[in-house]
């Protein structure tokens, strides 16, 4: 998180990005799920946008956006499911570390970086949806393992697809619009 000397904690930009980000991710989760054909499973474009925001603004913004957007979405359906909300926040946090190597605002995007980003998102998705969320359901909600792992694995696959396809597209589209600083080197 790049913060000015005067501001402690989140920078102003991070605060605004979190606010706007929550609104958009909530919209995508609530109104634009794409059914995959398997019952009760949708491709969640919100996760792709969380990954994009994380890659531009870093782990703190990623985690906060994921947490509150998931919470609001659950509340709008009348039922907060805390283990998955927390798992989503952890995913946002992990994916935010892609900011460190992508450096979208200052350096050009290469195939290698996109590969690294996708490697990170696959690992983060597997850890969060394949392990943390189901384990949370078993420990906290005492649900049978088979059911929660089925849900967890489905979520893992659909989120990997969502972030891998849509998230990657968003990042490449955004990178093209950034003026690269390398043209302005000091002699």
């Amino acid at each position: 998180m790049k913060s000015g000397k005067r501001t402690k904690g989140l920078s102003v930009e991070a605060v605004v990005a979190t606010g706007v980000g929550i609104a958009i991710v909530f919209l995508l989760k609530r109104f634009l799920p794409i059914p995959t054909g398997v019952p009760n499973t949708t491709i969640d474009l919100g996760e792709a946008f969380i990954a994009f925001l994380g890659s531009v603004f870093g782990p703190a913004v990623g985690a906060l956006v994921a947490f509150f957007a998931h919470l609001f979405n659950d509340l709008s359906w009348g039922d907060p499911w805390w283990t998955w909300i927390v798992a989503d926040a952890i995913f946002g946090f992990f994916i935010g570390f892609s900011q460190r190597f992508l450096k979208l605002k200052t350096t050009p995007l290469t195939k290698k970086k996109l590969f690294q980003f996708n490697l990170l998102q696959v690992i983060a998705n597997v850890i969060c949806w394949g392990i943390i969320a189901p384990l949370g359901d078993i420990l906290v909600y005492s649900q049978p393992a088979g059911k929660v792992f089925l849900q967890g694995i489905t979520a893992t696959v659909t989120d990997i697809l969502s972030v891998g396809i849509v998230g990657t597209l968003l990042i490449s589209a955004y990178a093209k619009t950034q003026t690269q600083k390398k043209r302005l080197t000091k002699d």
Binding site: R6, T7, K8, L10, S11, V12, E13, V15, V16, A17, G19, V20, G21, I24, L28, L32, I34, L45, A48, F49, F52, I165, V166, L169, L170, A173, Y174, T177
Partner: peptide, 29 residues
């Protein structure tokens, strides 16, 4: 949905920049 998302991303990035500037001018934080 990507064709809808990409314009949404750019308009929201603009929004973030404008709001950030306005809040910085008002010495937020």
């Amino acid at each position: 949905s990507t064709q809808i998302l990409i314009p949404l991303v750019f308009s929201s990035m603009d929004k973030i920049e404008i709001t950030t500037r306005a809040m910085k001018l008002r010495r937020f934080g």
